[in-house]
């Protein structure tokens, strides 16, 4: 029974790097199929019920635009799928008309892992909302692929560690890989007066050797510092817990999550 990677295609210009990321991940997980999801957003999405009616003319135009966008996505998908199928990989095209968040929560919840593109510009609100829906609405691990990323990742893994549930869950997901990484770096923050961090028990228990790197910062480690350190170490994948913005405590941490979703230039495996 093959597992399921759900790859969400949104923008035609980032579709190729997203599919390459999903393909690479499938190679790490072994017996999995790749379900590629394209969502046509209905014209009435985003309109408060009863407040406004979309004129027919506008509705028709928006439907056409969505059809054109998904056709462009499919044009990227088709040759990629043919190549993978020739290699024996199971691949499916899934197209639906729904709100993006709703479709992602429904399909994502029953996938083993969800693969998304990092929004190219922070202003792309749909992409941000989609990321939010998947990270906090599905209970699943999410692999975020930066635009223009090269396909290979998972040989040198940086783990942004906090001894909390989201990071633990992210590590357990990362352990599903059949191909062990060559190198694992643990990046842990330390504040003045606190005991120095140790290597997390979860790694030793699962038989993973790792190298500890302590980042000193009196105000918590920032996303930019994590990225800088990951690059300095030559990491090709970042694994971290994801935090929501709402409650006070999570708001503080949410900053790092938000930073990665906007600026990470390497694939990031996240889990809430």
């Amino acid at each position: 029974m093959p597992g399921v990677i759900l790859a969400f295609l949104e923008r035609p210009d980032s579709a190729a790097s997203l599919l390459a990321g999903a393909e690479h991940l499938a190679g790490k997980l072994g017996n999995v199929q790749i379900a590629v999801l394209a969502v046509r957003v209905p014209p009435e999405a985003g309109i408060v019920p009863g407040e406004e009616v979309v004129p027919v003319r506008v509705a028709v135009r928006r439907r056409l635009q969505e059809q054109e966008r998904t056709a462009a996505l499919h044009a990227v998908f088709a040759p990629w799928a043919a190549r993978l199928e020739a290699g024996g990989r199971l691949v499916r095209w899934c197209e639906t008309e729904a709100s993006t968040e709703q479709a992602l929560v429904e399909w994502g919840s029953r996938a083993d892992v969800v693969v998304l593109s990092r929004p190219e510009e922070p202003s792309l609100l749909t992409s941000q909302a989609a990321l939010h829906a998947v990270l906090f609405g599905t209970d699943r691990p999410v692999l975020v692929i930066p635009p223009g990323s090269s396909a290979s990742f998972g040989r040198r893994v940086a783990l942004a560690w906090r001894d909390e549930r989201p990071a633990t869950r992210a590590v357990l997901s990362a352990l599903r890989s059949l191909v062990p990484p060559e190198k694992v770096f643990v990046l842990a923050g330390v504040r003045p007066g606190e005991p120095p961090p140790r290597l997390p028990d979860i790694l030793a228990e699962h038989g993973i050797a790792a190298e500890l790197h302590v980042l000193e910062d009196s105000h918590g480690v920032s996303g930019a510092e994590l990225l800088e350190k990951a690059h300095a170490l030559g990491a090709d994948l970042l694994v971290m817990g994801a935090y929501r913005h709402s409650p006070v405590r999570e708001f503080l941490l949410g900053g790092v999550t938000r930073h990665m979703l906007m600026h990470a230039d390497l694939p990031v495996l996240m889990r809430h």
């Binding site: 029974m1 093959p2 597992g3 399921v4 199929q33 379900a35 499916r92 029953r110």
Partner: peptide, 10 residues
């Protein structure tokens, strides 16, 4: 039949 199982060909 739940989609979760059907799509995994269980």
């Amino acid at each position: 039949m739940p989609a979760l199982l059907a799509e995994r060909r269980v």
